[in-house]
Design a protein around this nucleic acid. Sequence first.
DNA 1: AACCATTTGTCGGCTATATTACAGTTACTG
DNA 2: CAGTAACTGTAATATAGCCGACAAATGGTT
Lengths: 225, 225
Amino acid sequence: MYEDLKYWYLRDHKLFRTLSFGQIRQLCIITGFKKAQKGEIIYFSSSDLPRIFLLKKGNIKIVAVDEEGNETIKDIIQKGDLFGELTLEADSQSNEYAKVLSDDVAICSFLMSDFEDLLLRNPSMALSYTKFVGLKMKRIKNSYANLISKDAKTRLFQFLKDWAEKEGVRTENTVVIDNYLTQNDMAQIICTSRQTATQLLNEMETNGTIVYSRKEIIITDMRKL
Amino acid sequence: MYEDLKYWYLRDHKLFRTLSFGQIRQLCIITGFKKAQKGEIIYFSSSDLPRIFLLKKGNIKIVAVDEEGNETIKDIIQKGDLFGELTLEADSQSNEYAKVLSDDVAICSFLMSDFEDLLLRNPSMALSYTKFVGLKMKRIKNSYANLISKDAKTRLFQFLKDWAEKEGVRTENTVVIDNYLTQNDMAQIICTSRQTATQLLNEMETNGTIVYSRKEIIITDMRKL
DNA sequence: AACCATTTGTCGGCTATATTACAGTTACTG
DNA sequence: CAGTAACTGTAATATAGCCGACAAATGGTT
């Protein structure tokens, strides 16, 4: 991987646009780069130094494993998203891994400590980053508020709506989403059982609201969602 | 309110400890200061410039009102906490107010824009602030994770435990908490109905786990919680 | 083609919790 | 001290959605 290519990989993220070549090179010296295939599991080894990751291509899910071995989906990361220790505080006890959902992914990473140095030298970037973290917080708050106050059906609707808006391809009022999730994944995201999710999806299919297959989901009329 | 007193009000918050007198004076020039009594309602008027608040004394709750007029508790703010537009992004549509829970409160505030200027001039403070926001995010994530995966009883236990640790006065293994919340408040915080909360509290009382009154809550044995 | 793992579909029974409804208790206010 | 508003207590009913169990479909692999 050539230095200048790495440069562009970081540069085209809005957070890094204001940086000069020199500034990014500081990060790049230690920038990691990784490709992976569908189904692969990427561990954030806690022995390693804490890092911040940038997903350049594809989709992954972050899965947390609790004491009893239950797996819960913490986050779905899409192209262009930053993930990892965004709070700039390493937390050791969390037991998480990432699983590749799309056919292949490309991931950049850099050390948290280097990123901190960069922020110290770039106050305006530090401010942007603070706002970025704040925005993330607001989103999380919102989605949790949904989880708590709405029923499973509404949650699924909302989820599909968000997904369609973020990644769907729209023509007229129908939206086609590339479906890289299983019904079980979706159930976990909207915090319900797999069975309930299945039932709701089928219900929507018989209603004509969506056409569901393992490859793609078609929302026939976005306005009705 | 004398300038130097305002200075100390800000200065003794850990976030502002690194600032010089001069730096804080910048904020102080426009620092607001306010006292209020129990039951008073403080509106964050959206017409006003966005502010960041610091609760110097007492307790307040932040209540959000949705379209249908339902009220939900968004946050309980305690002495020393920052609140308001922590994300540094004004958001206009949110309809929130603060209600004073303790006998009286003292609140400092300063303009978000002034705070931003300060962060731009103090990169290391910007970094601390980012970590602070991050910590807040982590807490929120945690409490929501509890809300979703645990049942009402566990949630109440957890809530009491947290409360006792934060504000309780401990002697041996018994903890006394100054109870400025109604059972309805608690129910809202742990996201359950008032009736369920009442039942659970009574159950705990007959079990001997707690002694409940409107003035204080005594946890007889902290180890059993 | 045969096999196996994963994903999806379906069905009752079960339980925690919301909801409705009302009664009793506290504590402030004139 | 009476009156009222805000809390707290209790019980009966209704239900969303979890769970276990199993069958069917799909898709990849040898």
